[in-house]
Simulated scan of single mutants.
Amino acid sequence: MIMLAALVVLIDQTSKAWAVSALSDGERITVIPPLIGLRLLYNPGAAFSIGAGATWVFTLAAAAAVAAILYAGRRLRSPVWTAALGGLLGGAASHLLDRLSRPPGFGQGHVVDFIDYGGLFVGNVADIALTGSCAVLMLLSLRSVPLGDVADKGHA
C-alpha cells in the first residue's frame, strides 16, 4: 500500500512540476481533440473549485483521510484492497502536499491541475488515482469483500 501510494505521489508531483514549468497559466493545448488537453490551473477548492474560500477545510480533510487510510491499512490482507487504498492514500497525500507547500501559504496552498477533460473540468494524476480507487472501493464494498482475513470479517 505504501509503495503504491509513494509511486502515485511521485508521478503526480513530477507531472505537476512539469506542468508548472512548461504550461502558461490558463492557455489550453489540445492533445486529443476535443477530449483531452493541457491547461494549467491552481485550484484552491475541491472538484470544480467548490469551496474555494475554505481551502483549510480541504487541508484538514486530506490529513484526516491520510491518517484513516494508514490506520485501516494495518489490517490489510486483500491484494485488491491494498491496491485501492494505496491509490487513495497516494492521491490524498499528494493533494495534502500541495495544500501544505504551495502558494499562497501553509495549509492554504492551491492544488495544481493541468489535465483538461474537454472543457468540462481540469484535474491531475492524483485525481485519476482517487477516482479510480474510489470506484474500486465501492465495488469491493458492494461485493462484501473483506478488508482483512475472512476470520477477521466481523471486525472489518
Rank of each mutant, 00 (worst) to 15 (best):
Phe48Met: 10
Leu4Thr: 10
Asn43Met: 09
Ala46Asp: 01
Gly107Leu: 10
Trp56Thr: 09
Ala83Gln: 00
Leu97Glu: 01
Ser101Lys: 01
Ile69Thr: 01
Pro33Asn: 09
Leu139Glu: 00
Thr59Lys: 02
Pro79Asp: 09
Tyr71Glu: 00
Ser78Cys: 08
Phe114Gln: 07
Ala135Gly: 14
Phe114Arg: 06
Met138Val: 15
Asp127Gln: 08
Phe114Ser: 07
Gly91Pro: 09
Ser24Phe: 04
Ala84Met: 07
Leu4Gln: 04
Gly73Gln: 01
Asp113Thr: 11
Ala92Ser: 12
Gly26Glu: 02
Leu85His: 01
His110Asp: 15
Ala52Ser: 15
Thr131Pro: 05
Asp113Gly: 09
Trp56Ser: 07
Gly154Ala: 13
Tyr42Glu: 07
Leu140Asn: 08
Leu139Pro: 06
His95Lys: 06
Ser94Gln: 08
Gly90Phe: 01
Ser78Glu: 12
Ala92Asn: 05
Val136Met: 13
Val111Tyr: 07
Leu40Tyr: 04
Ala68Tyr: 02
Asp12Asn: 11
Ala156Leu: 00
Asp12Gly: 06
Phe121Met: 10
Asp25Asn: 12
Ala68Glu: 02
Gly91Val: 11
Leu70Val: 13
Gly73Ile: 03
Thr14Trp: 14
Gln13Ala: 11
Leu40Gly: 03
His110Ile: 11
Val145Phe: 05
Gly123Arg: 09
Ala156Gly: 14
Arg77Tyr: 11
Thr82Cys: 12
Gly107Cys: 09
Val80Ala: 08
Leu139Arg: 00
Ser133Val: 10
Arg102His: 15
Ala65Gly: 00
Asp152Met: 02
Ala126Lys: 10
Asp98Phe: 06
Ser24Trp: 07
Ile115Arg: 11
His110Trp: 15
Ala46Trp: 03
Ala129Asp: 00
Lys16Phe: 13
Arg77Asp: 13
Gly37Leu: 12
Leu4Glu: 06
Ser15Lys: 05
Tyr71Asn: 10
Gly90His: 01
His155Glu: 14
Val112Tyr: 12
Ala64Gly: 13
Val136Ile: 15
Ala46Arg: 02
Leu139Val: 15
Pro104Asp: 13
Tyr117Thr: 09
Gly154Asn: 06
Ala72Asp: 09
Ala93Arg: 05
